[in-house]
Simulated assay, not measured.
Amino acid sequence: MTPADLSLTVLHAVRRAVGDGALRVDVPPVVKVERARPGGSGEYASNIALTLARAAGRSALDVAGILEERLRDAPGLRGVEITGPGFLNFSLRRDAGAELVRAVREAGAGYGSGTALAGTVVRFAEPAEPRASLVTRTVVRLLRAQGADAGFGGTERIHVRAGEYREDTLGTDAARWALLRPAPQDRPLDGPPLLVQHERNPLFRVRYAHSRVRRLLANGEQLRVTPAYETDIDAPALLGALGDHPVVLLAAARHRAPDRVARHLEATADALLAFQHTVLPLGDEKPSAAHRSRLALAEAAGTVLAGGLSVLGISAPDRI
């Protein structure tokens, strides 16, 4: 179950509660689900009960209890717990990794796209400043990927500080990263360090992580290890990063913030690079279901990295 799936599951529980008269509220268009904070319960959490409490004329704990009853047997959920003043905390089934990898494989580069913003119309004025134009066009792609009707011709503007768009000296990929990685109100990154192939260069790490996945798949083929998620893999950082990808894309669209995508790609790349050494058999070790599952997880990570870079207009080379 992905965060997007979980959000829809909770939304359906709200609709059921309203439909059977347990809650008297307007059904929200979307339910926000986020990673549980350190020390919290389960993998994900939602404050939907606190959001609906006032309109329902009930305490958040009462609302949470009503929703919890309708979530107990939801597919993909191992458990639902109410914490604090009324937060819903969710534990996913142990086969959630298989569902996640399957979702990425089926969606391909479109993993994370959706219809959450369907019916939303956004029109931007065409910016004259190069960085503002790049940011705006990237935001339009993000909005459209979430179902919004986005384009140019209106008055909404994205304000960014002027900066040199030095594609002629940096190349397209480094120039785009330099302008999109900082928040729009911050200064562009210094360009020359982005051309250095070193782990201190975040753009290099992201693109290198993708190339490592391609190499793992090629090496796996030579060893007759094919990607297939057959057994649970203990890789919480990487699974969490892949699961969060749809949430990050939606948040980046809503907040007009492509930098969120770039930061998430860095986190995904770091998790993949820490995980890569366990993927294929070493020495005389025989291929097993664990190796096939790890390779499938790595393949999914490569898909997410390539898709995220594509959203930013940056290439994902097979070799670096």
Rank of each mutant, 00 (worst) to 15 (best):
V63P: 13
A209R: 04
G19K: 03
P246N: 06
G39M: 10
R93F: 02
G114H: 04
R58V: 01
R58K: 15
T172N: 11
R207T: 15
T136E: 09
V31G: 05
G79N: 07
R181H: 15
V225R: 00
F275E: 01
R93H: 06
E221M: 11
F275D: 03
D73Y: 12
P182H: 09
D173Y: 11
H255W: 09
E156S: 14
M1H: 11
L223P: 00
A53Y: 05
D5R: 15
T136P: 10
P192C: 01
N201Y: 00
D62L: 05
R181S: 15
G108W: 12
D318S: 13
T278R: 15
T120C: 12
E156Q: 14
A162D: 13
G240F: 06
H12K: 14
A235C: 06
V27P: 06
L273I: 07
V140C: 07
S7M: 03
E34K: 14
L77S: 07
A132Y: 05
V206N: 04
V30F: 10
H159Q: 11
L195C: 00
R35N: 06
A300V: 00
D284C: 00
A150T: 07
G76R: 13
R24F: 07
F124C: 12
A103F: 06
R144S: 11
A162L: 10
A241M: 09
S91H: 13
A22K: 10
G84V: 08
A53V: 13
G220M: 00
E129Q: 12
R123L: 14
T2I: 08
T120G: 04
R144C: 09
S211P: 06
N47H: 08
A174N: 11
F204N: 05
A174L: 02
R263M: 05
R205F: 01
E199R: 14
D173W: 12
A36W: 01
R214I: 06
E99A: 15
G40W: 08
G76T: 12
T120W: 04
L50M: 15
V27L: 02
T155V: 13
V279D: 03
A316G: 09
